[in-house]
Design a protein around this nucleic acid. Sequence first.
DNA 1: CTGTTAGCGCATTCAA
DNA 2: TTGAATGCGCTAACAG
Lengths: 346, 346
Amino acid sequence: MRPNKKVTIKDVAKAAGVSTQTVSRVINNRHDVSSATRAHVQKIIDNLEYSPNIIARSLSRGRTNTLGVVGYGLEYYGSFSVLTGIEQRAHELGFSLLLSLLDRIEPDNVDQSINGLLSRQVDGIIWAVHWQVKTFDWLGPKFENLSVPLVFLNKSQRGNDVVVAMNNRLGGRLATEHLLKQGYRRIGIITGPTEWWEAKEREAGWREAMEQTGTNDMDRLKVIGDWWAASGDVGLYTLYARSPKIDAVFACNDQMALGAMQAARRLGLKIPDDLAIVGFDDIPEAAYFYPSLSTIQQDVKAVGALAVEQMCKVIQAHQNGERFNSEISWITPKLIIRQSSIKNNQ
Amino acid sequence: MRPNKKVTIKDVAKAAGVSTQTVSRVINNRHDVSSATRAHVQKIIDNLEYSPNIIARSLSRGRTNTLGVVGYGLEYYGSFSVLTGIEQRAHELGFSLLLSLLDRIEPDNVDQSINGLLSRQVDGIIWAVHWQVKTFDWLGPKFENLSVPLVFLNKSQRGNDVVVAMNNRLGGRLATEHLLKQGYRRIGIITGPTEWWEAKEREAGWREAMEQTGTNDMDRLKVIGDWWAASGDVGLYTLYARSPKIDAVFACNDQMALGAMQAARRLGLKIPDDLAIVGFDDIPEAAYFYPSLSTIQQDVKAVGALAVEQMCKVIQAHQNGERFNSEISWITPKLIIRQSSIKNNQ
DNA sequence: CTGTTAGCGCATTCAA
DNA sequence: TTGAATGCGCTAACAG
């Protein structure tokens, strides 16, 4: 038998012959109850299978212990891992999750989403939306003067924003430096859409590594994809047509790397001998591509978990009227070396 | 400026010189308000940027317009699509989503999850957990006498369960019949874990199709995987060792199909000439495997959306004290033919 | 059409 | 240590 909705604190009080506040004290584990009455009340609670109405508690306390999560693009790899990470840590810290998904990042949707969460009295909002630079103009102001704390995922810090981010730039650098170390020299890049923060950062990492080799004219080595395999396919053709001497490609995610591999095959290029490829994400399939794909692994779950932890601190500070001085928290990615980038014949 | 938490219905009433009741009527779009006062009150609302406290409303109404979603295994393909489908339709129908993820399917976790949602007064629970047969013994009873309606995803109907499911059996049949039509005869299967409903159903579909060919001794053609690519790899070796005459494989998801392709390559088997492969799911990468993978496409989002619709009906019935007579709702999968299963040389 | 009264279930004052 | 009163913000039931 499940707790029946009808059993309230009053019923328990009556059955136990005590006042409702005593029951309240028991269910909140407060110490100002004699162990005798506590035991007694607890027994009644168990018998009646009473379970407190959190809605009523929230109203009374002015705090819901609920976090709002605004998400977007769950179909991109990693998004659901973030969510899993958020949920787990939130659960551990006693928070529930109100989920709001954006189908498009537009003013009306954003307003609806935020207002919906606010009117449901969430204690804080985690902005798990892939950050797009071009939207900032109208998006930024919406976050000002919000009545609850906000934690951002994967974007650059700005003002007092609290941000948790995967170090995508480092990832891009790791990938490129690995290729350089293997002896590849003309390393092209297939980036994601230019507005995406992740894409910009990964590219920046590639650029940093390349600059050290004295390469100039890097724009000829760059092609823009859309994260999907097809764009990696097309991308490699473009790159190859433009500079046939290219000997490696850093694809900014594994899907595009897969597309690039496909194109390479059709161009008669052997991987990794004629062309090396490194991806980004380490999707589970990457180890089973042909050849297996070197890539950058990221612990996305950790990003979600850390976001919740930061949120807790901010809420704490918020309630005490203190200021939370924010620094961006970085999670570090890791290079995974497989066959697609190991030079055989020097 | 965002609505300040402090602005309540009272403030609006005072500012507008009306009773709170009138304000309540306005914000609920009730028709028993003169258009004059409505306009007036609305103006005050806009000025004050008032937004109703949904928590208070829920307490008062005894209804939260919130659905609980219990999920598991977001890392498996499709899970997040279900979630997206659920969220979208829920949003359209005016429901919020309280998300609860299971890390393991164990009695304590399940209790916690369900009780958490119930004490937060959700109006219904969608059980989006991959159904595992072996857990039924202890899981089943937990769903009895629940105080709120329950809608299940992807399982067999039982008693009065309300279920929305992808027709996995049909999918298995489509895949197998396609192979037969192409002229393949000894069609092996790499299934998912035997406890999974999806795995059982896909296998049943294969079995149905095979039986029509008069094949017996089908167990020799069957191998059990764990949904991951590695198990498809191993699986194909096993299958091939056992019956070298095998000429096609139905892998019960695309990852295992990928693994099987890898193994086939090492065994020197040409796909699709020596060995045809069909997968299941149609993950975005499948079109870019080498060769591109024939597979079964499923509109998982539709499952989620339909689940919410069913939930609405059940809640309706529940509140009117009516009985909802449940039938399982099926979503139909679709065969996608690519290169991995098209016989070239007859 | 509008206002008054009451109460949703709980927690937070205060007294005792 | 316990209990009585009061209020969280809103809506339902009833008057007028």
